[in-house]
Each structure stands twice: as C-alpha cells, then as structure tokens.
Design a protein around this nucleic acid. Structure first.
Length: 256
DNA sequence: ATGGTTGTGTTACAA
C-alpha cells in the first residue's frame, strides 16, 4: 500500500500537475494539504474519473485537507478534536483497508512569538492528546502531512538563520518530540537515519535552485504501522516542474 | 540592497 502526503498549495492552480503526478505515482492513498478550496469547489470528478474516492475538509481561500483513496475510506473524521471554536480546516482522518490515516496541516505559527505561535502550540497540544487516544485503538496508524516543524538542525539548510522561526523554535520542537515519544516512528528517518531530505523550498530567493530547503512534511507511524514499513522516500521531481507547489510529495510503502 | 514569489479571490493576507 503506497501512501503519499503532498502539500499542493491550492488545488485549482495545481490540478494539471497533480493529475500528472497521480498518473505517474498512482498512490493507493494521497493525503493532501492546503487545498485552499471549499468542499463544493474541489475538483472531485477529476479524481473520481481515475478511480479515487475523495474526502475533503475545506474552507474558503486558506488551509483545507483531503484524503483520496483507491479503496473505500471508512469512518471519516473531519477536524481535530479539542476545540469546538476552531474553524480552521487542518485535519481529516479515515480508515483504508484496516489502516487509520490522517492528513494533517499543522499551523505555521509565524510570527513567533505572537498569537499565531500560541495557536500553533495549542494545536500541537490537541494533536498530542488526540494521537494518544488513537494509539489506544491499536490500529496501524499513519499521521502524515505538513507539520510545519523541522525536527532537527539537519532538517534546515541554515539552522542558525532559522532558530527563532516558528518551524524551529524549541517550544515547537519540544511538542514534536512529545508526540514522537508517545511511540511513533518517523518513517523517513527510519529508512534514512541522517542527511538532507528536504520537502519544502520557498518560492522566493531562488530557494529551489540553491537547495535552500526544509524537512517539514512527515510520516509518523504507530508500532503496528512501523512493523509493516517497507520504504519511505521524498520525491523531489514534482518540485522542479513549472507551476510546482512549494512542497514536494513524500511517500511510504506499507505491507498491507 | 533588508530585496524576492505564489495562491486566493478581489485587496490584503498567508506562507
């Protein structure tokens, strides 16, 4: 079972490239972030026509996540529990072939410190609580998406320059470690323990040609999922194309 | 030199 996570930065602008990638890679499950679309405007038919079930959790203009699957998606949950007043569409979760899979778009949190950073940290606290509850259900569990966290300095092209950014600050990294310490495996780092594996390059300042990247898109696997891990890789090719997103997809293969 | 780009949806805002 091939599962991919891809922050597409707008489904409307990305549709031709995204369909290309679907034809090339043919994921069994695709977890998308930043669809920047309400549910009714998502180009559902384009994906249904190539054999996918489409589950979205969108909002106007910003954020928005989706789960696309060749096999049926069951028990879909929209929105991260823990704050009924939170209107930002950043979380969707469903079960495919006995694997519980979440598509996560964690808040960026800049500028830090500030209200947006506080929201990020509160959101992470809610994610930790929810992940702990999910682990008790003992599914093979896959929490993937744009975490907007560089876990370690080697995940940043310029650690010193980024040390005060919300993606790298100690408060953000501490919460990520707390999440990991519940018992998750960072699938990419399991396959590739060290070295550069960037997943995002800013549109500005020639970040892509200079390889000024960050590793912020992650696959977190429960023990039941990690036991079935066969491979995990970053696919840098989509980032190099015209009209690319600022992120590139990460995929993992589970023996399911 | 304190710069630069992209997407959404109409004019600033988020990243």
């Amino acid at each position: 079972m091939k599962i991919a996570t891809f922050n597409i930065n707008g489904v409307k602008a990305r549709l031709p490239r995204l369909l290309e990638w679907f034809h090339e890679f043919s994921p069994d499950v695709a977890c998308l972030q930043e669809i920047k679309s309400i549910d009714d405007n998502f180009p559902r038919r384009a994906f249904e026509d190539i054999g996918y079930q489409v589950e979205t959790h969108g909002q106007k203009a910003f954020n928005g996540v989706a789960l696309l699957s060749k096999q049926p998606v069951k028990a879909v949950r929209r929105g991260l529990p823990g704050d009924a007043a939170d209107e930002q569409a950043r979380y969707i979760e469903g079960t495919v072939n006995g694997v519980r899979i979440a598509s996560i778009y964690l808040p960026n949190g800049n500028p830090a410190p500030g209200e947006k950073f506080d929201y990020k940290l509160r959101w992470m606290d809610r994610l930790i609580d929810h992940a702990a509850a999910l682990l008790l259900e003992e599914w093979p569990l896959v929490l993937c998406g744009d975490y907007n966290i560089c876990p370690r300095d080697e995940d940043v092209y310029d650690p010193k320059g980024w040390q005060d950014d919300a993606l790298c600050r100690p408060e953000s990294r501490a919460r990520f470690r707390t999440l990991m310490n519940l018992g998750f495996t960072d699938a990419l780092r399991h396959i590739m323990p060290s070295g550069q594996a960037y997943t995002y390059w800013d549109f500005q300042r020639g970040a892509w040609p200079k390889d000024h990247g960050l590793r912020i898109d992650h696959f977190l696997l429960s023990a039941q999922a990690a036991d079935r891990l066969q491979d995990c890789q970053v696919d840098r090719r989509p980032r190099g194309k015209d009209k690319a997103s600022d992120h590139t997809p990460v995929w993992c293969k589970l023996e399911v």
